[in-house]
């Protein structure tokens, strides 16, 4: 199996995926931490709300279970951004882009249309993710 996939300079997704599985094993073994991301959005929303209404946040049931603070997963999520930045700069695939190619083909290159749809999708996706427990 070739490490490089031919067209876009990326790695073979089976190889990159399997290596990410090794990272997840090491994380559980060394740090006792399972990979996840969505709880971080709850904690961060709580941190932001605490700036305006700390008493109210302290009384909310969900923020008592998922305390608004910077924890392992919060740092993991920030790390994903840094790792992606390093990787994309190292192979020249970094591209400052507001509208994805596939979106532009179907819906045009208006940044605001894409932005509002992405924002709405984010609201719905996170509500669902938290409800499902993921």
């Amino acid at each position: 199996m070739p490490l490089k996939s031919s067209h876009d300079g990326g790695w073979n997704p089976y190889v990159a995926g399997a290596l990410s599985g090794v990272v997840s094993i090491l994380s559980v073994w060394v740090a006792g931490r399972f990979l996840g991301a969505s709880t971080t959005f709850v904690r961060t929303a709580g941190l932001i709300e605490s700036l305006f209404a700390p008493e109210r946040v302290a009384q909310m049931e969900l923020f008592r279970l998922e305390i608004p603070q910077i924890d392992w997963q919060w740092m993991f999520v920030v790390g994903i951004l840094l790792g992606s930045l390093l990787s994309s700069l190292s192979d020249g695939s970094f591209r400052w882009q507001a509208v994805p190619d596939m979106w532009a083909e179907k819906f045009g290159s208006n940044k605001l249309t894409r932005g509002l749809t992405a924002f709405s999708g984010g609201v719905i996706a996170m509500f669902g993710a938290r409800l499902a427990g993921g």
Partner: peptide, 16 residues
């Protein structure tokens, strides 16, 4: 947390 995230993000990006 941040080290694991960097490794994971690097692989997600390489896997495109």
């Amino acid at each position: 947390g941040v080290i694991t995230g960097i490794l994971f993000g690097f692989l997600l990006q390489k896997g495109r």
